[in-house]
Design a protein around this nucleic acid. Structure first.
Length: 390
DNA sequence: TCTGGGGTCCTTTTGCCC
DNA sequence: TCTGGGGCAAAAGGACCC
């Protein structure tokens, strides 16, 4: 999709069409999530700090994100994709790879399929998208980027190298700021430069995996298949405070909220995880992580929380100024695969039962209907995260 | 200028066992 | 008892993507 969040937000705010619009968090610390092309003309782009974006484009209208609307639009778009082929690999809410080799007989060549998808999505969702067609995933991805917005570009197999080589190295999927800097220091600016560099030079500079990978991509070699639905490897939640926090009680309360949120998502997806990790970002933006692997996988918020707090306390911080905390559960398995080892003298009912009861209450009365008392704040107290009404 | 939240993957370090 | 190294898994850090 083109400028997905911004385009979907404009559906309910048609009076803003044609204006520079930025979608981003209302607070002072947010970044740009999406911007219309009118705003991009002023240099605004996603991931840019909101403060800077407002300065660059003071006339822009800033709207808060509406993730429910984006999620609904995404469902509609993915449904269109799946009507073409079951081989759909979503990359995010607004983007997916489709392997259309098996659909040609029914729907015509890739160009016709692409145009049909574009027309159908414009018709059903009222937003534009761009389609790249190629014989590999990453060339298709670059092709779609090149024809944005509202475009379609087919790169036939014989044209791949000619298409790639003039592009800047930073255009490659997997080359970000740091890697680009390393490549520039080697005097490599275009994909063609990269292609004509000995592989050992690249692996020395970037490591064996990245070096070999980029060398292959520079010649258009990419064998990765379109894989529908890979299982989750980790599930987590994190939060940046609106202002830095040095009160351990506030940190602990936030770890509790994030632990419960993460565990609830595990239970909802019938999954459990073995490793609990926390993330702490200090006021100066340095970030650390700490992890502990449990004897047995869990989906219980209290277990996640106890582990997370233990990890935090083990840091031995003394009123450090904290910007962000996060909780993540890794080593995920299907709950059905997990066999619970019974202990002698174990209580018959525990936190798991309590939390399942909370899940049932939440389904009937809404998320947050029942929650730990420490997370129920006196009215009027400042909140760091907007929350549903109790 | 001041940097979100959801993730994945890779590399290096560390601790343990033999 | 000390020293060293290989193998392995877990932990930690960092780059990257949308």
């Amino acid at each position: 999709m083109d400028a997905f969040y911004a385009s979907v937000s404009l559906l309910t705010r048609p009076e803003l069409r044609g204006l520079p619009v930025i979608v981003g968090g209302g607070g002072t610390r947010g970044v740009v999530l999406s911007a219309t092309y009118e705003a991009r003309r002023s240099g605004v782009h996603s991931a840019m700090p909101m403060m800077r974006a407002r300065r660059m484009c003071p006339q822009a209208v800033v709207v808060a994100p509406d993730f429910d609307a984006y999620s609904r639009a995404s469902d509609g778009v993915m449904e269109v994709f799946r009507s073409v082929t079951p081989l759909v690999e979503p990359i995010s809410l607004d983007e997916a790879f489709l392997d259309v080799r098996g659909a040609s007989r029914r729907l015509g060549g890739p160009r016709q399929i692409g145009e049909w998808i574009r027309a159908t999505i414009a018709d059903e969702q009222g937003i534009t998208c761009s389609v790249g067609v190629a014989s590999s995933k990453f060339v298709a991805k670059l092709a779609s980027a090149r024809c944005k917005p509202d475009g379609l570009l087919v790169v036939p197999p014989d044209d791949v190298v000619a298409f790639l080589h003039p592009l800047p190295v930073g255009a490659l999927w997997g080359v970000g700021e740091k890697t680009e800097e390393v490549l520039h220091r080697l005097g490599l600016h275009s994909v063609g430069d990269l292609a004509h560099t000995p592989v050992p030079t690249l692996t020395r500079a970037l490591g064996p995996a990245a070096g070999a990978h980029l060398a292959a991509l520079a010649w258009g070699r990419d064998e990765r298949a379109v894989v529908p639905h890979e299982p989750d490897k980790s599930i987590g939640a994190e939060n940046t405070f609106s202002t830095d926090v040095d009160d351990p009680a506030v940190i602990a309360r936030e770890l509790l909220r994030l632990s419960e949120k993460t565990a609830a998502r595990l239970r909802a997806s019938h999954q459990v995880g073995r490793t609990v990790s926390i993330k702490v970002r200090f006021a100066d933006f340095t970030t650390i992580t700490r992890a502990r692997t449990l004897p047995e996988a869990t989906d219980v918020g209290r277990v996640v929380y106890d582990t997370a707090v233990g990890l935090y306390e083990a840091l031995g911080l003394q009123r450090a100024r904290i910007r962000l905390v996060g909780v993540r559960v890794e080593g995920i398995l299907e709950a059905a695969e997990q066999v619970h080892q019974l202990q002698l003298g174990e209580r018959e009912h525990g936190w798991r039962d309590a939390e399942q009861a909370v899940d049932r209450a939440a389904r009937r009365f809404g998320a947050g209907a029942v929650r730990p008392a420490t997370l129920v704040r006196p009215s009027g107290e400042a909140q760091d995260t907007p929350r549903q009404a109790p």
